[in-house]
Design a binder for these strands. Sequence first.
RNA 1: GGCGUCGUGGCCGAGUGGCUAGGCUGGGCUCUGCAAAAGCUCCUACAGCGGUUCGAAUCCGCUCGAUGCCUCCA
Length: 490
Amino acid sequence: MELYKTNQLKIYNSLSKSKEVFKPIVEGNVGMYVCGPTVYSNVHLGNVRTFMSFDMIFRYLKHLGYKVRYVRNITDAGHLTDDDAEDKISTKARLEKIEPMEVVQRYTIDFHNTLQNINNLPPSIEPTATGHIVEQIEIIKDILAKGMAYEVNGSVYFDVLKYNETENYGILSGRKIEDSIENTRALDGQSEKKNPQDFALWKKADERHIMRWPSPWSDGFPGWHLECSAMSTKYLGSEFDIHGGGMDLKFPHHECEIAQSKVKNGVNPVHYWMHANMLILNGEKMSKSTGNYILPNEIFSGENNILSKPFSPSVTRFFMLQANYRSILDFTNAGIEASEKGYIKLEEAVNNLDNIAVSNKSSIDVKGWKQKCYDAMNDDFNTPILIANLFEAVKFVNLLLVKKETITAIDLKELKSTLKAFFYDVLGLKNEIQQDSSDKLTGVIELLIQMRKEARDNKNWSLSDQIRDELLALGIQLKDGKEGTTFSVN
RNA sequence: GGCGUCGUGGCCGAGUGGCUAGGCUGGGCUCUGCAAAAGCUCCUACAGCGGUUCGAAUCCGCUCGAUGCCUCCA
């Protein structure tokens, strides 16, 4: 039987600002849409945290037995820069004197490589904005026909004030449109919009704009917010279960999405809105302009001015999973160093699962422990609590190894499968220790362990310590125990 | 200025009306030839000031501080 039938998952819904019991539209199936990146530069660690958070959510939903269709778009057109209303991709292409699609290709590859490095699963569908121009034009036609948009000089804008007469613009972000009217900063005039709150559905392209498509209104390009409405509707339907994205997209992006979809399809598109919180660096917002930012590859390679040494993708992932996805997380050297030490302990315990002897009765409560793991994840994907429970299992494993606790074969099987399922499948961690120990290396080390034992039996401490210390210098740690000596490779 | 979020022990980071978070660090002990590893154990906190309550870190109010959005942003 599928696990979702016996687990009551609760999800924090940004729409209601509370945790709600998760009930999909179609039992056993989940439709999830997550706003993807605009591929005009390398993804930084903050981007990665958001996508990693939804990867964890995707993984747990699958673990519960749901059939999940996970759609995450690539924004390759329509996302404007702030200063001169030019497309981000187009700007980059002009600056580097390459084709816009070369920009898209370069950073899409970087995005995929980085997410693969950090062990994210690929989404079920990864559609692009430029691949859905036709769908977007159809939505604009529909919104125009319903009188909720207007055309000015070849551009089309969504009429937010009119929409707000019958609907609630601000339903997600909690903003009141009156406030935003009062507090709108004076923009440099020249706006075609009837009201500053209005947003573009279609923009006419000027002469220098490289990316352009024909439409009934002008040669131009779609507004940024529109692509998500078009693609989520196309692949998940007019109503679907989960929509995710970074906290910073809540307003205006997601608010606009709701408005567009509501006009087009007549229903509120999303049942559960989920927002992942920001990652900050040394207490401050990540920002390219101030230099306070770090790229994932710089963490893995150690080529940066922030960290004392390189940290692996799994350690980076583990660090981020030790905080709740809805909390702001501060990335610091001390923080990831602490995570690395804990992570190694956890990895070793996972490896040691196979070295445990069984008894005819259990002194530890495996069932109760397992339930606590599920309770943590069922409570809005509380990975910090889950990890705290995994460390409880680490203690079990270590006590079992020195025979201070006992376990039956059945309980051991359950402990193994549960710990491995959460470690590998749900949290998406990799066991880096295991990868480094080839059979040949293991044989060599075991030989040295044997030689050291003989030296110790002869009280030849200088030789035994030399073997131990020089191996340690190579990253191989010997561990003496009652049952003999074991080792780990870092 | 407007709309939010948050302030937890040496550090990171959960919890959110009464009951152990967890990790890292530091001290002590057991084990060990000495260490390391492992185990046990100690350091027992909730920004400040009021209020509600039998009882508040947890609810309410104010103050202070941090931070996000309001303009592109995961």
